[in-house]
Design a protein around this nucleic acid. Structure first.
Lengths: 355, 355
DNA sequence: CTGAAAGCGCTAACAG
DNA sequence: CTGTTAGCGCTTTCAG
C-alpha cells in the first residue's frame, strides 16, 4: 500500500503496534534495541504517523488556531510606497506573527483561517475540529457558535468587547488611547474645534475610541458630542477621504483637528485634504488610530495610537496554553496598553513635507 | 458526555449517523425537513464535527501547510524605524500572507510551523500528518525526509535549488537579478572596482547571486572573482557591518561599489560605513538583495533586487491545489522574476540624506 | 518493557 | 433520500 501504517511497521520489525506507537510518542519507554528495530523498519517503509489518527485517538492535536475576519480593505492590500504590496503589514499579519512565535515556543503549530464570504460555518468546522484551542478576532464567529465551541475547547477572544464572560479575552485600551490623544491635541496644540470620524455603530473598537474622545472633551469643557461627527461605513481609505470632503463641505469654519477612528481613514483623508489644498497640520491636524506601518510612511507622517497587535497574539497563545493546562482556571480579561505616537500630522514633528 | 458525536445527534433526531454526516458534508443530499431536524438536535447538543475523525475517515483535511526554518535574525526582529517591531515584515510573513490568501480562495486553511531548534522530526510529524499538502522553504526539512513524505502527499519546495526533481519547485531569479543589478552599477554608474559580500557557502540563494555578479563582471571585461570578496557566516546586519569594516581595513583603494548578498547585510553595512565617515553613495555605492521593507526606510534608501515573496506563496498554493487535483501531473519548476529597485544607495536617487 | 483488544468520531460504499 | 456496515490509523488501558 502507498501509505504504511503502524501495522506494517510492527509486522516488519516483529513487534506489536503498541510498541511502534510508543517509539514515536515516548521513545524512552522502549528498549533502545527494540526502538532501533522499529525506526529502521519505519524508514524502509517510508512510514510517518498520521496526525488525524493520532488526534482522534488521543484527543489532542498540538495545534492552536486563529480565526480572523475576511477584512480585506482593498486599499490596504494595494498600498505601500512604491507600489510594493509587501510593505504593508496588516493587523492579521502581526497577530499571526505573534501567535506563531509564541506557539512555537510552546511546541504548537498554528492553524490560520479567515472567514470566507460564504459564512462562518465552514470556518468553524475547519478549525474548531482540528485544534486544541484557538483565538478569534472580534466579529468573526457568531457568539452563539462560540458559546457552543467553547464548551469543548479553550477559546480566547481578541479585541472587541467581551461577548462571552466565561471566556478568556484580550483587548486593547481603545478608550484610554483616544482620550490621551485627544488631550494632546487640546492641551499641547491648543485645538478646541475637534471632529471625530467614527465607524460602523457595531464596531466596538471605534465606539470605545469615540468614548475616549468624548471623555477628553468633557475634561476640557469642550462640547461633548453624542455621536461621531461623521460615521464611515467601512473605515477604509476611500471612506476616510469621503469623510474629509464632507467635513470641508459643511458650512461654517472647518474643525481645527480631525480624529479618525483608524489609520486607514486618516490616510485617505490626508490624500483628500492635500488635493483640496488644505495643509496638514497647518490648516487641520489629523490623527489616526492603530499605528499601521503605512502611518509612518505617508506624508505628513501620521500621529496615531499604536496598538500592540503582535503582543496580542502572544498573550493569546499564553492564555490558551495556560487554560489547556487547567481548564478550571478563572477566565481572565486582559487590557493591553497602547501608546500615543506623535508625528507630523498633528503638528508635533516639523512641518509637513512631501515624500 | 461533554463531546457529542454523530451518534448522539442521530439518536436525538431519530435518523442514522450516515444522515447526520450527510447534513454536514452535503446538505442538499438530505430532505430539508430531515436536515432541519438534525441541525436542530445538533444545536441543542452543542455538536460540531471532529476534524480529526473526518480527516481520518476521508483522508483529506482541507488544510495546506507551510514549513519554514527558524530563521530568526535578531536584528530583523528588533529593527524598524522607531523601534516599532511591527513595521518589519519578514519573508516568512509575506509568504504566509500569500499562501493564506490563495488557500482561502481555494477553500483551504493554512497550517504554519517553523522548525524548532529541537530538530525537524517534530515539525514533520506536526504538519505532514495533518495537511493535504504543503510547501517547504529550502533547508527546513532534510531532503531524505521530504523524499519519504512526498510519496504520500504533494510537497512544493520554495526557494533554493531543486533538491528533489520529481517535486514541484519554485524559485526566484537570483542569478538574473544580481546580474542586472551589477550591470546597472557598471554601465549606468561607471563603477569598475566592485566587491561582493556573500553568505554561507551552502546558501544556494547567495551563491546564485554571486553567480549573477560574476556574469556581469565577465560581460564587462572586469576581473571575475572565484570567490566572494568576503563571506559572511550569517547574512545578518551585524555580519554586514563587519564585512564593511573589513573592506575598509584592507590595504589599497576601497571598492567603488559593494554588492551584498541580501538587504540585511547591506543595512548593517550602511550603519558601519556611516560611523566610519564613509558617505554612501558618494564614496561607495551599496546594494542589497530581497527588497525587504526596511530597505526603503533606511537612509540612504537601499538599491536592491526585489523578490516577489508574496507571489511565491500564492504560486505554491496553486501548485499544491493543482497537484491535489491530478497527482500524475508532470512536476514543474517555476522561476519567479525579480526586479531591480533603484534607490539612493547606488546614487540613482538624489544624494544620501540622513533620516 | 511489550502485547492484546477496544475504541476515538466520522466517512464511504452499498443496499434499500 | 436514508440506513447498514466497515473501517480510517493511532492511542490506551490492562495484562503479562
Amino acid at each position: 500500500m502507498s501509505t504504511p501504517t503502524v501495522y506494517d511497521v510492527a509486522e516488519r520489525s516483529g513487534v506489536s503496534i503498541a510498541t511502534v506507537s510508543r517509539v514515536y510518542r515516548n521513545p524512552d519507554s522502549v528498549r533502545a534495541q527494540t526502538r532501533d528495530k522499529v525506526l529502521h523498519a519505519a524508514r524502509e517503509l517510508g512510514y510517518f504517523p498520521s496526525g488525524n489518527a493520532r488526534g482522534l485517538a488521543s484527543r489532542t492535536t498540538g495545534v492552536l488556531g486563529l480565526c480572523f475576519p475576511d477584512y480585506a480593505d482593498p486599499d490596504a492590500e494595494a498600498d505601500g510606497a512604491d507600489g510594493d504590496d509587501s510593505a504593508v503589514m496588516l493587523y492579521s499579519d502581526q497577530i499571526i506573527r505573534g501567535m506563531e512565535r509564541a506557539a512555537r515556543r510552546h511546541g504548537y503549530a498554528l492553524l490560520i483561517a479567515a472567514s470566507l464570504e460564504g459564512g462562518p460555518q465552514t470556518l468553524v468546522e475547519q478549525v474548531a475540529g482540528r485544534v486544541d484551542g484557538f483565538a478569534v478576532l472580534a466579529r468573526t464567529i457568531p457568539t452563539e457558535d462560540l458559546e457552543i465551541i467553547s464548551r469543548r475547547l479553550p477559546v480566547v477572544m481578541l479585541a472587541g468587547p467581551r461577548e462571552i464572560d466565561h471566556l478568556d479575552h484580550i483587548e486593547v485600551a481603545n478608550f484610554d488611547g483616544e482620550r490621551e490623544l485627544t488631550r494632546h491635541l487640546i492641551a499641547d496644540h491648543g485645538l478646541r474645534r475637534l471632529a471625530f470620524v467614527g465607524g460602523e455603530i457595531d464596531s466596538p473598537d471605534a465606539e470605545a475610541r469615540f468614548g475616549g474622545f468624548r471623555a477628553a472633551c468633557q475634561e476640557a469643557d469642550l462640547p461633548v458630542p453624542d455621536e461621531p461627527t461623521i460615521r464611515a461605513s467601512m473605515m477604509t481609505q476611500a471612506e476616510g477621504a469621503r469623510a474629509a470632503e464632507a467635513l470641508l463641505d459643511r458650512g461654517g469654519a472647518h474643525p481645527q483637528g480631525v480624529l479618525f477612528a483608524n489609520d486607514q481613514m486618516a490616510v485617505g483623508a490626508l490624500h483628500a485634504l492635500e488635493s483640496r489644498g488644505v495643509r496638514v497640520p497647518r490648516d487641520i491636524a489629523v490623527t489616526g488610530f492603530d499605528g499601521i506601518p503605512l502611518s509612518r510612511i505617508v506624508r505628513p507622517a501620521l500621529t496615531t495610537v499604536r496598538q500592540p497587535m503582535r503582543r496580542l497574539g502572544e498573550e493569546a497563545v499564553d492564555l490558551l496554553v495556560r487554560r489547556l493546562g487547567d481548564r478550571s482556571r478563572e477566565p481572565v480579561s486582559l487590557m493591553l496598553p497602547v501608546s500615543v505616537t506623535r508625528r507630523a500630522s498633528c503638528g508635533c514633528v516639523g512641518e509637513a513635507r512631501q515624500l
